[in-house]
Amino acid sequence: MELENNTQISKFLLLEFSEKPELQPLIFVIFLSMYLITVFGNLLIILAVSSDSCLHTPMYFFLSNLSFVDICFTSTTIPNMLWNIQTHSKVITYEACITQIYFYILFAGLDDILLAVMAYDRYMAICHPLQYMVIMSPRLCGLLVLLSWTMNIMYSLLHSLMVLRLSFCSDLEIHHFFCELNQVIKLSCSDTFLNNIVIYFSTALFGGGPFAGIIYSYSKIVSSITGISSAQGKYKVFSTCASHLSVVSLFYCTVLGVYLSPAITHSSHASATASVMYTVVMPMLNPFIYSLRNKDIKKSLKRFYLGMPGVKLPVT
């Protein structure tokens, strides 16, 4: 088979969710609704944290960063998919595909590392409460976020450059709703051994590292909770990290379900469908999890709403 130089490729075809034309309007409405809920919900979290001085703490600082990353994470895939549905197009340009790979990996990695940083924050708050505000200073919090961005910018850049070195055959059909890295590599006519080695190594480092940090932090938290004598005290301590633990469980269960399930591994359709869970559903649910289980967030949102022009308290 004759190879094409990768610089001559002009487009890929995104085929997932486009095989049944009669379902396109329904798919469009569903994904548009989920995207708007995701953006609106996470923006509310950011506004609540930024507008309320009571929430200017390390925990809510990291939460607002996570909300911003979730908005960006979903925005790397869904708007392009909605545009393709609306225009009845399956095309994504080569340049746009590489760009999508870069930002998708960037924000997925940031989600992972920020969850680990938030776990460390909960560990410090519960296990070292007296030194918490001294250790988790604004300077350290800013450095942790800056380090997370720097590491993931380099991480995603590495993968993008590795894709740029590949040549592709005439079959440029991606059976996914976005340019998923593994799907793009499978289309290459070049030797992808080095790409796969980089993927395995970087996934173990940037995926396994934060996960190990989360496990360590929560093992210390559980050990600290078991040392509390009263049931009320245990519940109060556990409630401070229940929302974060819910988000962590949702994130890793969906990601591991996508990449470790044998049925999904051998089915492009199943992989694309499962990917919706952590690319769309999880960022959409995060604001609900944090707001519904967090009294401070609910109070802040209420104060923010009452402070809006034209909003008056009901007369009793």
Rank of each mutant, 00 (worst) to 15 (best):
3 L>Q: 06
3 L>M: 12
4 E>G: 15
16 E>V: 09
18 S>G: 15
19 E>S: 15
21 P>L: 12
21 P>G: 14
37 I>M: 11
41 G>A: 05
42 N>Q: 10
51 S>I: 09
52 D>G: 02
53 S>Q: 13
55 L>T: 10
58 P>E: 01
59 M>E: 02
65 N>R: 13
66 L>E: 02
66 L>G: 01
69 V>C: 11
69 V>Y: 02
70 D>A: 10
71 I>L: 06
71 I>R: 07
75 S>Y: 09
81 M>N: 08
84 N>E: 12
88 H>N: 15
88 H>L: 15
88 H>E: 14
89 S>N: 12
90 K>T: 11
93 T>R: 03
101 I>E: 05
101 I>P: 06
107 F>V: 15
110 L>W: 06
110 L>V: 07
113 I>P: 02
113 I>T: 15
114 L>A: 07
115 L>I: 01
116 A>P: 03
116 A>N: 00
117 V>W: 05
117 V>F: 06
118 M>F: 03
120 Y>C: 02
120 Y>P: 00
122 R>V: 01
125 A>V: 04
128 H>E: 12
129 P>K: 02
131 Q>H: 05
131 Q>F: 05
135 I>C: 04
136 M>N: 05
139 R>W: 07
142 G>C: 14
142 G>W: 05
145 V>G: 04
153 I>E: 10
153 I>C: 09
153 I>L: 10
156 S>L: 03
157 L>V: 11
159 H>A: 00
160 S>F: 01
162 M>H: 06
163 V>G: 00
163 V>W: 00
164 L>Q: 09
167 S>E: 04
170 S>G: 14
174 I>F: 11
175 H>E: 12
182 N>K: 13
182 N>I: 10
184 V>I: 07
186 K>G: 06
188 S>I: 08
189 C>I: 04
192 T>V: 09
194 L>H: 11
202 S>G: 03
204 A>I: 07
205 L>M: 10
205 L>R: 02
208 G>Q: 01
210 P>E: 02
214 I>H: 00
221 I>N: 03
224 S>H: 13
225 I>A: 14
227 G>I: 05
227 G>F: 08
229 S>W: 09
230 S>T: 11
232 Q>F: 09
233 G>F: 04
235 Y>P: 00
236 K>H: 12
236 K>M: 12
237 V>F: 00
245 L>H: 02
249 S>D: 02
251 F>C: 04
255 V>L: 07
255 V>C: 03
259 Y>K: 05
260 L>Y: 09
265 T>P: 09
268 S>E: 08
268 S>V: 07
269 H>M: 07
282 M>P: 01
286 N>W: 07
287 P>H: 06
287 P>S: 05
293 R>Q: 12
301 L>T: 03
301 L>R: 06
305 Y>C: 14
308 M>I: 09
308 M>D: 10
314 P>N: 06
315 V>R: 10
